[in-house]
Amino acid sequence: MRNTTIIALKEFKSYLASPMAYIVIGIFLVLTGVFFATSPDTLIETSIKGFLGSGSILLLLFASVLTMRLLAEERKMGTLELLLTAPVRDSELILGKFVGSLGILIVMLVLTFYYPILLRLFGDPDMGPITAGYLGLFLLGGASLAVGIFASSLTSNQIVATVVAGGILFALYFMGMLASFLPEALGKFVNFFSLSYYFPDFMRGIIDTRGVIYYLSITALFLFLAIRSLENSRWS
């Protein structure tokens, strides 16, 4: 726990010390702002659906960019040797990296709070879908970061890490579209594993336990794979 905190704090600080996080957060705010302002849902329903819908897809992209350096850079610069020879478990290391990047995700989401605040100031939005929507975005973002960390653990090349993470994430996200072309039973099965399948529920204000469990499982699975990939590098 202590080690996880040490690594998470260090990671969070180095995000704040590099331009990457600011650029990513800036672009995220500009793009979601445009979608929020121009979406008919904003004015007609006084909902933040315009932001949530675009935000969910942008998160996939930005999570792969934010996490690409977490392990790939350590491997390239040789600093992984410091971390792996310190009395820190591989799981603590991965978890620390994850929590550190989660910190940036939280900062990014908190900065978007002015969308619902604007709605509150000028209208009477239903807070249920907004709360559920943010929870969904947070869970989806967490899962995306875990995928990104796994991709970053595979290589010393940050570009490769981003592309692999983006590939996995978009494949998981758009898998649902494939489902409609498949026989019904199989389609349902595929949908079940799609990153986008549960998200509309959250946007509508429904907190489905299956959705929560799904996102948490994806997060746990990819963090576990990242730990194994790190362990594996000790054998090769």
């Binding site: 010390a17 610069m77 040789g78 040797e81 020879t85 009395p87």
Partner: peptide, 18 residues
């Protein structure tokens, strides 16, 4: 335990330039 009792300087010095 081993790692706790060892000081290790790798060939490529593991430093964070930032």
């Amino acid at each position: 335990q081993v790692r706790r009792h060892i000081g290790y300087l790798p060939e490529a010095v593991p430093l964070y330039s930032d």
